[in-house]
């Protein structure tokens, strides 16, 4: 590992994504990416008696499948980095408790998958692990229960609200010759521009994404045009337009031609009535694992900067009137 500039870390041994899996819920399976997901669960309960167990079941599904697709057994995985949105990260720990894989739980809110990829790459590049698992999950129902209202509560959502994705994405990272390489990683700084509206998380996260992307481009001396895609995690439609605006006007980078957002990709906002798009740890994890990385594997995309965005508030801090800090971690993929 080497440091590049102030914030970016490079991985000289080029850790490789050797397999990915994405398991999602019903609504995600009705969206534009339906055909790319490995498993679409027809029932969001995933055969479990509680929403929290359902999310853990998704974690188990995706991890098992990613390991199986790599032609490995769980005992071959040296370390797992996983996280979710629930208190104490129970979806990840409960989902992986029977696997016996050494587990480092992570919390980065919705940016967790990017953070997990960075940590897995650090582990593989640094010789801590031959094979590492990176995973993140979220569930619409468990997130609503924790952060908002009961499911059957008859409230209205504002047009800026996003829908938490029900899904888990897992990737196995190893030292190998073939496959998509993780060349750079960057852990972001906590950024707070004073947004307090929990129904406008895209706006809360956009300045953080702008900062991380600008820092990454500066540290690596690259331009937006050098990438086939600059992919943000879950800014949704409002956050995406803010990101483009802030990057252009405050940092002088125009990413509009290459920018895509997992929250915009996963749902058809109009047809599926999801307002400003998807959100949650499972949003970027399932989109990256089902759509982006396989596309890179097929060489349809060669160079992608994935900037996982996360809003770091809790229901308590929101009630206490605090603003919403955000963080964005970046990973660069090459194929």
């Amino acid at each position: 590992m080497n440091r590049r500039g102030k914030y970016v870390v490079t991985f000289p041994s080029l850790p490789t994504v050797i397999s990915t899996a994405a398991c999602v819920g019903k609504t995600e399976g009705e969206g534009p990416l339906a055909e790319y997901f490995d498993i679409v669960n027809e029932n969001d309960g995933v055969g479990s008696s509680t929403w929290e167990r359902a999310e853990a079941a998704l974690v188990k599904q995706a991890a098992g499948l990613a390991i199986q697709k790599a032609g490995l057994k769980t005992k071959d995985i040296d370390i797992a980095f996983a996280g979710d949105l629930l208190n104490q990260c129970t979806a990840s720990t409960f989902g992986l408790r029977e696997t016996e894989i050494p587990l480092a739980g992570l919390f980065g809110a919705c940016s967790t998958f990017a953070l997990a990829l960075i940590m897995a790459s650090v582990a593989v590049d640094g010789g801590l692990a031959d094979k590492a698992l990176a995973e993140a999950s979220s569930h619409f129902c468990s997130a609503e229960k924790q952060f908002r209202y009961p499911l059957e509560y008859g409230g209205q959502r504002t047009p800026t609200a996003q829908r938490t994705v029900t899904g888990a994405g897992a990737a196995v990272i190893a030292k190998e010759r073939d496959g998509v390489k993780i060349t750079h990683g960057m852990v972001g700084r906590v950024t707070d521009y004073g947004v307090t509206d929990m129904a406008n998380m895209g706006a809360a996260m956009a300045p953080s994404a702008a900062r991380t992307i600008a820092d990454f481009l500066n540290d690596t001396g690259s331009r937006p045009a050098d990438f086939d895609m600059i992919l943000t995690g879950d800014l949704g439609s409002v956050g995406s337009s803010l990101l483009n605006e802030v990057l252009r006007e405050e940092y002088g980078f125009d990413i509009s031609r290459v920018h895509a957002d997992c929250g915009n990709l996963i749902f058809d906002a109009e047809a599926q009535d999801v307002h400003a798009g998807g959100s949650g740890c499972g949003c970027s994890a399932s989109v990256v694992c089902s759509y982006i990385l396989p596309k890179m594997q097929r060489k349809e995309l060669r160079k992608v900067l994935f900037a996982g965005t996360g809003a770091l508030m809790s229901p308590l801090t929101a009630l206490q009137g605090d603003t919403i800090p955000a963080v964005t971690h970046a990973v660069m993929f090459c194929s």
Partner: peptide
């Protein structure tokens, strides 16, 4: 080029205006 070590590039008030314009 962006100066290193900047803290916040925009005023929070200015960003709040941007948010208002961007949010339907």
């Amino acid at each position: 080029m962006i100066p290193k070590g900047e803290v916040l590039r925009m005023e929070k008030k200015e960003y709040a205006k941007r948010v208002e314009n961007a949010s339907p």
